Computed example of a mutant assay.
Amino acid sequence: MIKKTLYFGNPAYLSLRNEQLVIKLPEVESDSDMPDTLKRQTEVTKPIEDIGVVVLDHRRITLTTGVLEALLANSCAVITCDRQSMPVGLLLPLCGHTTQNERFRKQLDASLPLKKQLWQQTIRAKINNQASVLFSHAGVEVKCMRVWAESVKSGDVDNVEARAAAYYWKNLFPQVEGFVRGRDGVPPNHLLNYGYAILRAVVARSLVISGLLPTLGIHHHNRYNAYCLADDIMEPYRPYVDELVCQLISEFGVSAELPKSLKARLLSIPTLDVFIEGKRSPLMVAVGQTTSSLYKCFDGELRRIAYPER
């Protein structure tokens, strides 16, 4: 089942009633001239079990602890945004699987050679997906990227990922002169940042559901990063966000603004179609297959992570 992504960009009251998320508007609630019967008609309810991601993008959103408890109990990821409407926080459940302790131990006991092999698979999948996006949206020759993908060694000791990234970003947005990928860079970096934050939340949520620690990566190991494993596993999925950004630029042009119309499109990332193991699947479902296969690699049941192929 595909979980829904709910975005709140206006003042709202969020509460819980009969395992339903109740959404009220403060302007309506404070209107003393409106009858209570009409106020109740303006309420919107959503089943908690249908929600996968919630984005809170306004400083006047009020929610009860009962709502947070119910969302987390149903493995929902809650994203909070800053004054610039950029995602700044991520809330996840502490326990996402019945055998979590056992799974943690499998992950902690993973050998260095295994983690290097898993990182090799990850980077190969990422570069191949980047090459497909680059060819279809920029018409750029990508034979070199296919060669680089095949040349990635265990642990990517030659840092082929960086070489491919330099070529990729140099050619992906030809309409933006001298484009450089960076969090604080020129547009469309802001679109990429927003999309990656949504993707990161989806991956982190799925890791928790699979009983894995999002903090303990197979490659990323920044001591200040609470989501190293999520940052590892999302790498082959990033090109799907890049592709969506390319589509948005072709429709709306390159702008420093991030209107709600663009946010709405970026919030569709969990439902993007991807191909994984020969079948079409929504991205959120595919991520679940990826994280499940990752645990099986830690457990010794599998030797390869299931990643999407574009």
Rank of each mutant, 00 (worst) to 15 (best):
L294A: 00
D158M: 08
A12V: 09
F179D: 01
K279G: 14
V203A: 01
Y13P: 05
D33I: 10
L14H: 06
L267K: 04
V180D: 10
R59N: 13
V67R: 04
R17G: 07
I269E: 03
A165I: 07
V88T: 11
G66L: 04
L16F: 07
T42N: 09
I61Q: 07
T122I: 11
I233T: 00
I276Q: 15
P214Y: 07
L283W: 08
Y295L: 06
S15H: 05
R238S: 04
K46V: 15
T80R: 10
H220L: 04
R280W: 10
K143F: 10
P239C: 03
N189T: 02
G300E: 09
E251G: 01
I269T: 12
I127D: 02
E27L: 13
D273C: 09
I218R: 03
R223V: 13
P236L: 05
S210F: 04
C228G: 05
I269P: 04
K106F: 15
F8M: 02
W148Q: 11
Q100P: 10
N101W: 09
P308S: 04
Q107E: 04
V55D: 06
P236G: 03
M34P: 03
N222I: 07
A306C: 13
A138F: 08
V157Y: 02
T99G: 13
D231H: 03
L21R: 04
L14W: 02
L63V: 03
K106A: 13
H190Q: 05
L14R: 00
A110G: 14
P308Y: 06
T64Q: 11
A110R: 06
H58F: 12
R205D: 11
A286I: 03
Y168I: 08
K106N: 14
V285I: 06
L172T: 02
